[in-house]
Amino acid sequence: MEKGKGVMGAGRRWAVDLTDNSTSPCCRDVPDPPGFSRASSDQDDSTVSRQKKEAESTWKSQKAWEVAQAPFKNLLMMGFMMWMAGSTVHLFSIGITFSALWQPISALQGVGKVFEPYKDSKVDLLGPKLLFIALNLGGLALGVWKLNTLGLLPTHASDWVSSLPPAQEVEYSGGGIPLH
């Protein structure tokens, strides 16, 4: 390795730096050619990029809104599936309900990631994010509602009492018919 370095170091005889680092005309050795206006080209460039950027940001915000609205379709789909599943407890309805609960939760966990590609200083993601969260919460609510219609939520007194053991008795009484 050291040898190679040495070779490399020894092999470099000369080098020309063609890049023009200077931007101000004052301290340049060579004057600009006639008809060349440094300032105009600079300005032209910036307008193009600005336009481009604007287009991109509108596209991004548009996309972000689209993404934010995506769970709505999901919601409708879920609602239909739930309606199909019915209100009795069996394998299918349980599966639907749990997926209806799991999807919004996982989506909510990954809110940041979903909107990552549309992150921009100029794009306001708060609106889409809020919509996304709201729709997912709606989906979650739908799932919970389904869970309740299936009777799997402890909302009745019976859910809380059925595990209570019988109360102890203070008195004890025994006896009966005498032995014979």
Binding site: A157, V161, P166
Partner: peptide, 24 residues
């Protein structure tokens, strides 16, 4: 006895069993 409650699911109601060892 596991529980003192008798759940009447049809009416979403609850009845408490009278559980006593001192009954004859």
């Amino acid at each position: 006895v596991h529980t003192q409650a008798k759940v009447i699911a049809a009416e979403e109601d609850l009845m408490y069993k009278y559980i006593s060892k001192n009954l004859l």
